[in-house]
């Protein structure tokens, strides 16, 4: 069977040279083993540099917001990316007619921090995946280890390893392992209020307000974010916990009902704030209040926070 990375190069070349797409957005290797950057390629000749490796983690669809294509833009979507793409579609932020989607089944990606934690990063030149194993290449020799040991936590609890939307699927679908999705939230819910408050205060006090969590989020697709507005100024510039809390509460509310639980915010955060926990609390509440809803999974299902039904549980009887 052909390697997925080879197929990827072929379809990229094909879509550009046929003229169907005017640009391909894919991943390219950076100077270090853990770097797989987004790549924007318009010349068919450039498609050879495209890769698919265990570090191709960034969701490429958000770059569509910046582009104004005349023809189509081709891009690659993993399972989690596809959910985000769908949400952007629902929010009217991308035009389905202007994209060519290649779906990539993905059983998980490697968290560089875990490689480091395992003491494997020193002198590491390259990491490759073969079947269920990772091969670590050094100047002298190589080492092997089971791939799953190095996956992101979010990948280990992935619910959609196969994209739910695509024009062409590359490779075979991978199986999905069911997990208890809200274990972390349930645990937080049962801790006393003060403890919960100090838990979040502790985390938020470390936030450097780099806004990476917002920038990476497929549900944060506003043309201009309210936190960037000068008038009215919603968020003070002062480095105060209350301002940071305000940012985080507002962020969580803005994505409530639209967060696809891709876990990108938590992954990207340079100081390791577990933002996905906050998002998942909303998801859990919405599910419990209005019935199961999986943002990004089903485009036809009505969004619970934007629909009013007379039998909604928050509608008090009689009035």
């Amino acid at each position: 069977m052909k390697q997925l990375s080879e197929i990827l190069k072929e379809v990229a070349f094909g879509s550009l040279s046929s003229g169907e797409a005017e640009m391909v957005i894919g991943w390219q290797k950076g100077p270090f083993w853990w770097q797989s950057f987004p790549a924007f390629i318009t010349d068919p000749g450039g498609t050879g540099s495209l890769i698919w490796d265990p570090f191709s983690v960034s969701n490429l669809s958000k770059y569509l917001l910046k582009e104004v294509p005349e023809k189509k833009i081709a891009l690659f979507l993993k399972g989690c990316d596809a959910l985000g793409f769908n949400q952007m579609l629902r929010d009217g932020r991308v035009d389905r007619e202007k994209v060519l989607l290649f779906g990539i089944p993905c059983d998980g990606l490697v968290d560089p921090a875990r490689v480091e934690a395992a003491g494997l990063s020193k002198g590491l030149l390259q990491v490759k995946k073969e079947q269920e194993e990772l091969i670590f290449y050094y100047k002298k020799g190589q080492r092997k280890a089971p791939a799953r040991d190095f996956y992101y936590a979010k990948c280990l609890s992935c619910r959609y390893p196969n994209p739910v939307i695509y024009d062409q699927m590359l490779g075979e679908a991978v199986p999905c392992q069911p997990v208890e999705r809200f274990a972390d939230v349930s645990k937080l819910e049962t801790t006393p209020l003060e403890e919960r408050f100090s838990y979040w205060s502790r985390h938020f006090s470390r936030c450097i307000r780099c806004f990476a969590c917002r920038n990476v989020c497929p549900a944060c697709s506003c043309r201009e974010c309210i936190f960037d507005l000068a008038e009215p100024r919603w968020l003070g510039k002062a480095n105060e916990l209350s301002e940071t809390q305000f940012y985080h509460i507002t962020r969580a509310y803005h994505v409530a009902g639209r967060c696809v639980d891709c876990g990108e915010c938590a992954r990207i955060c340079p100081v390791g704030i577990p933002l996905a926990e906050l998002n998942r609390k909303f998801i859990k509440d919405i599910n419990e209040l209005y019935g199961e809803y999986d943002a990004g999974a089903d485009l036809d299902k009505e969004a619970p926070l934007l629909t009013f039904k007379t039998d909604d549980p928050d509608v008090s009887s009689g009035s």
Binding site: D91, G92, E224, A303, T307
Partner: peptide, 13 residues
């Protein structure tokens, strides 16, 4: 209009 992202939430509510 320059701020509106066209999400149409307002229409629904």
């Amino acid at each position: 209009e320059s701020l509106c992202t066209g999400c149409l939430s307002c229409i629904k509510v």
